[in-house]
């Protein structure tokens, strides 16, 4: 594998670690299987790209991508908790609607950032325009987001959100508003995904309406790999796992692509990702079959994706 492919894989890994953090927030902490992600990722990209092309400061344009993602998350949340649409369907509806909205935002299927200033530009003069400049900037951003999320989850509001996702009956007995927690959590989750989309567009130089396909599955794969590597319950380690899982995942994909393992090509990426997630879910089921119901990393995922047996 060339150094160019390696730095590209690490850049993509760092960007998808933000998606993994978002997925961790919705799937794990809120217990909300949120599919908005496939729409909020290109939404963040589209908002940032259109902002930049129209002369907006790239940092403000990135913030716009975050805000747009957060609003998309709020829409899914409102559909679910205020209007009573089932959580899975609420996410799908927002995702589908966002496809049209992204086309409207960009006015075409894609927006090129070729030659435009991006968040990476100032650092090219600061660190020098090397192969690793983008990766260093992205690493700092990913780490900052992880630390911010860790901090939030230790606050009164963050702790209430974790309790609400795990045990809503107990949460309301402690005067926690479960609906509000879903809204807050979905906004934060998709805000992080919007950030990932905004950075991805600036990293590859283009925002494309179809770039979101498979984002959710990649985020899940990254989170699951992270959980397998760091078998920790503590939030700070779970978020480290999201970062490490995403980077490892993109690294393995890059290796498989460059070595031509099983003849895998770039277009097979989503198939491979889906298989990884399916195998992980099935493996967790096999591991827990018949065993005492211990709460470990994958039990939540299992209960989200596998039919419940009546008791």
């Amino acid at each position: 594998m060339s150094m160019f492919a390696l730095s590209g894989a690490i850049e993509a890994g760092l960007i998808f670690s933000l998606v993994a953090l978002g997925v961790y927030m919705s799937f794990r902490l809120l217990n909300f299987p949120d599919l908005t992600v496939d729409g909020s990722f290109p939404l963040g990209a589209a908002a940032a790209a259109v902002g930049i092309v129209n002369g907006l400061n790239p940092f403000l344009a990135t913030a716009l991508g975050v805000a747009a993602g957060a609003v998309a998350g709020l829409v899914t949340g409102v559909l679910n908790v205020r209007l009573g649409v089932m959580n899975l369907l609420a996410g799908i509806l927002t995702m589908v609607a966002l496809y049209s909205i992204n086309l409207r935002i960009m006015g075409s299927p894609n927006t090129s950032l070729y030659g435009s200033e991006t968040v990476f530009t100032p650092f090219e003069s600061l660190i020098g325009p090397g192969l690793w400049t983008n990766a260093i900037v992205l690493a700092v951003i990913a780490l900052a987001v992880k630390l911010l999320l860790d901090w939030f989850l230790r606050t009164e509001l963050g702790l209430a959100l974790r309790a609400s996702g795990e045990n809503p009956v107990m949460a309301s007995a402690q005067s926690i508003d479960n609906d509000r927690m879903v809204l807050v959590g979905m906004a934060i989750s998709n805000g992080m995904v919007g950030l990932a989309g905004a950075l991805f567009a600036q990293s590859v130089g283009v925002a494309d309406v179809s770039m979101g396909i498979g984002t959710i599955v990649t985020g899940l794969a990254a989170m699951i790999i992270g959980e397998a590597v760091f078998k920790a319950r503590k939030v700070a380690w779970a978020t480290v796992g999201c970062l490490a899982g995403a980077i490892l995942y993109r690294f393995f994909i890059a290796v498989a692509l460059s070595a031509g393992v099983l003849g895998i090509q770039a277009q097979d990426l989503n198939l491979v990702t889906a298989l990884v997630v399916a195998v992980a879910v099935v493996a967790s089921k096999a591991r827990f079959a018949g065993a005492a119901r211990v709460r470990l990393g994958m039990t939540r995922l299992r209960s989200t994706f596998q039919p419940q047996r009546g008791g």
């Binding site: 939030f152 230790r154 606050t155 009164e156 509001l157 963050g158 702790l159 209430a160 309790a163 949460a171 402690q174 005067s175 926690i176």
Partner: peptide, 17 residues
């Protein structure tokens, strides 16, 4: 216990513990 200690009032961004 910290969850219970904040019962009945608005939860903010202070460290829960």
């Amino acid at each position: 216990l910290a969850l219970a200690a904040s019962r009945g009032r608005r939860r903010n961004l202070r460290n829960a513990l």
